[in-house]
Design a protein around this nucleic acid. Structure first.
Length: 258
DNA sequence: ATGACCTAAACATTAGGA
């Protein structure tokens, strides 16, 4: 089965691109981020017509996450990241889908750093680490897929020296990502491609996509039982070159059937 | 070092993104 994550950067303005990508690649499960749409403006009918059921947590203007499942139902687990009752931003959605526990996340950007936004990012990461550790303890097959807004290593950015003080690449962010790997999560794309330069995001500025001046910030972290089923994965690069496209490209993994 | 571009709503400028 194929599971993908895609930061769409506005689901309604991106709907033609999303539907074309779904039709061409037919992922079984999809995690979407940055819907930038309130709950009532989610295009569930268009997705239904394309063969996908959907669970979504919208928000006016910003954030927003969704989980899609092809031809099957979705059982909701939660709509917010636990650990802070004050944090109502739509950045985490979890469901049981096709036998797998799927966490869809949109981690805070954190810029400018240092500052309150960076503090929020680090606090979110701490809550996420606690939550992820408990998921591992459950021994369920789990995938935590989304826009982590973290460049894990200097292999994951076209020009590391330019990004050292950026919230995406600061040591606190990288260390938090490493902590998740140390817990036992597998960075699926890096596992499949240990050395290669893989990017999932290219700035709209400066012709970044054509120059391949990109970042790898969208990740699929898989629990040990799923790591044993990992058979393929990749970035759907051409989607980033389509008309009216997101600044992110979809990322996917293929898992062997049990 | 700066600014380049894109989205949604604050609607024609601003805020946020990464």
């Amino acid at each position: 089965m194929k599971i993908a994550t895609y930061n769409v950067n506005g689901i309604n303005s991106r709907l033609p691109v999303l539907l074309r990508w779904l039709e061409e690649t037919a992922p079984d499960v999809v995690c979407l981020q940055e819907l930038k749409a309130p709950q009532e403006k989610f295009p569930f009918q268009s997705l239904h017509d394309a063969g996908y059921s959907a669970l979504w947590q919208g928000q006016k203007s910003w954030n927003g996450v969704a989980i899609l499942s092809r031809n099957t139902s979705i059982q909701e687990v939660c709509r917010l990241l636990p650990g802070d009752a004050e944090d109502l931003q739509s950045r985490y959605l979890e469901a049981q889908v096709q036998g797998i526990r799927v966490g869809c996340l949109y981690l805070p950007n954190g810029n400018p750093a240092p500052g309150p936004k960076f503090d929020y990012k680090l606090a979110w990461l701490e809550r996420f680490q606690v939550y992820a550790a408990n998921l591992l303890k459950s021994e369920l097959p789990v995938i935590l897929a989304g826009d982590y807004n973290i460049i894990p290593t200097e292999t994951d950015v076209y020009k590391p020296e330019r990004w050292l003080s950026d919230a995406l690449f600061r040591s606190e962010s990288r260390q938090a990502f490493q902590t998740l790997l140390n817990q036992g999560w597998t960075d699926a794309l890096r596992k499949l491609y240990p050395q290669e330069r893989l990017y999932t995001y290219w700035d709209y500025f400066r012709d970044a996509y054509r120059r391949n001046a990109g970042l790898r910030i969208d990740h699929l972290l898989i629990s040990p039982s799923l790591a044993g089923r990992l058979i393929a994965g990749g970035v759907d690069y051409p989607v980033r070159g389509w008309e009216k496209t997101s600044d992110h490209a979809p990322v996917w993994v293929e898992l062997a059937d049990v």
